[in-house]
Design a protein around this nucleic acid. Structure first.
Lengths: 216, 216
DNA sequence: GTATGATTGAAATGAACGTTTGAATTAGGA
DNA sequence: TCCTAATTCAAACGTTCATTTCAATCATAC
């Protein structure tokens, strides 16, 4: 029965953190949704912060593992002489996030909304835990991107990677909202493919002309 | 002296909301930073939520006015037969946000971080106020984008607009952070131009092939 | 100078928060 | 069956929160 309790708490916390944010969600709300006793959170997880960490580890670890697995596959092909396509790297980065949504159903959608939200979280402790989960992904993808975009400076590559992360995080949050800014968003269709094409084109865009050469 | 009090509260709230989020910031923190009495917030603004609204209206209104002014300029040129360039529309959308940062100095940077954060805010009341400020911008930019990207479906255009918004919001938050995910971000250089090029390329990317035609 | 209205100040209100406590209950091996 | 450890429960802890109150202070017009 304890395992069911832990899972129910994680599910409830995932949904509420995604909907209202970490600070705006109380343990009383979580335990009410999970239909468990208030003290169960501190008993099973230790603290509210530790609960958030647990919520993340349950889902992020598999997503980032899948990202690295796909990148491994691309590099294995490259070792056999087949050139790595940027679009495939973009796909390796973006797809696991969306596949997780489908794999975990309604809960997965909530979680991805939470991930999008966490990308703009500035609480230091929470960021530190979040950072740790994504560091291995950055360490692998950045060098590959730099190699595929040799005309760009290192700063440019990092910027563009963050543009991509931003487009992903934002769309994950917005597609869950009833009323996003500036008009409704379709949910079905091939959103993933649109995201892949957008970011592949953005990453490969010609480097901006140096200041002074550009037109007014 | 009252005007100075209101301004000091707005400045303090802007910085703290940006750094820690709305729910995680207390009025006591705000009034401490502003060096005003605790009751001054409720006296001048009515409530904590009304304060956030005031923080936004002070800055967002001018930014969105500038966006529309730039778009007006482009459409005026178009009326004289000169074709509108997508890149200029992208610029009209992205530049005012960055110009505001420079115009308002350190406070502007904090505010832009707050804007980025608000894009993933899901509290209904806050979103409603936020939405109202951006609706006129959407109403003007969406038709122009649709006209400039005639091969895309309406859903595709909306998606790509949100990809752009996401890249903007994310970079506004991340460039203010000590340690963004996946590696440090340069702050100087021509970040704006990089963002413009990235999004222009992304928006003009060829529409994804229909499902089934695409390669595995 | 004094009356008046706007602003500030210190203190208190009641509610909600995360966390802790210790007794009651449950589950499983001896 | 009984013992033990794990889990659940109701209640309370101390703290912090947004907001309110009302007296003190300020600016200003008469």
């Amino acid at each position: 029965m304890s395992l069911a309790t832990k899972e129910r708490i994680l599910d409830a916390a995932e949904g509420l953190f995604a909907n209202h944010g970490f600070a705006a969600t109380s343990l009383r709300q979580i335990t009410a949704v999970a239909e468990v006793n208030l003290a169960a959170v501190n008993y099973h997880f230790g603290s509210k912060e530790a609960l958030l960490t647990a919520v993340f580890e349950r889902r992020v670890v598999p997503v980032n593992q899948e990202r690295l697995r796909l990148l491994d596959g691309l590099e294995a092909e490259a070792a056999q002489g087949k050139a790595i396509q940027l679009e495939d790297v973009v796909r390796a980065f973006l797809l696991p996030a969306f596949n997780a949504v489908e794999g975990f159903g309604q809960q997965g959608a909530k979680f991805m909304q939470l991930v999008g939200r966490m990308h703009s979280e500035t609480n230091e402790q929470l960021r530190a835990a979040f950072l740790k989960l994504f560091q291995p992904v950055g360490q692998r993808f950045v060098p590959v991107l730099r190699q595929l975009l040799p005309t760009l400076t290192e700063d440019e590559v990092m910027w563009r990677l963050h543009f991509m992360i931003g487009s992903l995080a934002h769309i994950l949050v917005c597609t869950q909202l009833e009323e996003p800014l500036m008009g409704k968003l379709a949910r079905g269709g091939d959103l993933v493919e649109a995201l892949v094409q957008f970011n592949t084109a953005g990453l490969t865009a010609q480097a901006p002309a140096p200041v002074g050469v550009r037109r007014a």
